[in-house]
Computed example of a mutant assay.
Amino acid sequence: MTKGEHNSKNELSLENQEELLHTLKERFEKHMDRHQEVEWSKVLEKLEANPAKLWSLNEMERTGGEPDVVGYDPEKEEYIFYDCSAETPKGRRSVCYDREALESRKKHKPETSVMDMATAMGIELLTEEQYRELQKLGEFDRKSSSWVQTPSDIRKLGGALFCDRRYDHVFVYHNGADSYYSARGFRGSLRV
């Protein structure tokens, strides 16, 4: 088995698990302001007990998302990870919003869609509210933009929403769901 492969669907090799956990721990310690009340040892316990979630985090990492802990839900006893890369993840750009939008394109179809990619990775697309929460932890998407979950009434009319940060403010925009751009990707969340 070569580096980067996994033993079975949604499971990392032991070597890849160790490498990912090391990367996550370094990022966690470097950005304590994102999760001040959280202890790495407790996050590690959850990660080691959930190989499928670890696989999803690896997919977030592999596509350039730089996932990090941004919160804890005491009711569900889950740690919340968001993609924290400075710009929208490079490995998730140039994709339209969903399968319906992808299939509606007559020419120049992108390879996949945001929703298909997120589902395959086992993550959720950030909502507008989550995107705004992320922006309180730093300055993200100053040169790029990220698709966010779109309300069904907007989507039914052919639109989709995306966000970015410009002029020290977070903006929400709309586009046709079938559009795609090299500077627009998506950010995800994962609960462990």
Rank of each mutant, 00 (worst) to 15 (best):
M1H: 09
G4Y: 09
E5C: 02
N7A: 06
N10W: 07
N10H: 01
S13I: 01
N16C: 03
E18Y: 11
E18H: 15
L21K: 13
T23R: 12
L24A: 07
F28Q: 00
F28W: 02
F28A: 11
F28R: 09
E29W: 01
E29G: 04
E29I: 05
H31E: 12
D33G: 01
H35G: 07
Q36D: 14
E37I: 11
V38K: 01
E39Q: 12
K42D: 04
K42Y: 02
L47F: 12
E48Q: 14
N50D: 06
L54A: 13
L54E: 06
W55S: 02
S56P: 05
L57G: 01
N58E: 08
M60Y: 13
T63A: 10
E66W: 05
E66L: 11
D68P: 03
D68W: 03
D73G: 03
D73Q: 08
P74Y: 11
P74G: 07
A86Y: 10
A86I: 06
Y97S: 03
L102V: 00
R105Y: 07
E111P: 00
T112C: 03
V114H: 08
V114M: 04
T119R: 15
G122P: 02
L125R: 08
L126D: 09
T127I: 00
E128M: 00
E129P: 05
L134C: 06
Q135E: 14
K136P: 02
K136M: 09
L137H: 07
L137Y: 10
G138D: 05
R142V: 09
R142K: 10
K143F: 12
S145M: 05
W147C: 05
V148I: 15
V148Y: 03
T150Q: 13
P151S: 12
S152P: 04
S152T: 14
S152E: 15
K156R: 11
A160H: 01
L161G: 02
R165N: 13
H169S: 08
F171R: 11
F171V: 04
H174N: 10
Y180T: 01
Y181C: 01
S182R: 03
R187V: 10
R191V: 07
R191G: 06
R191C: 11
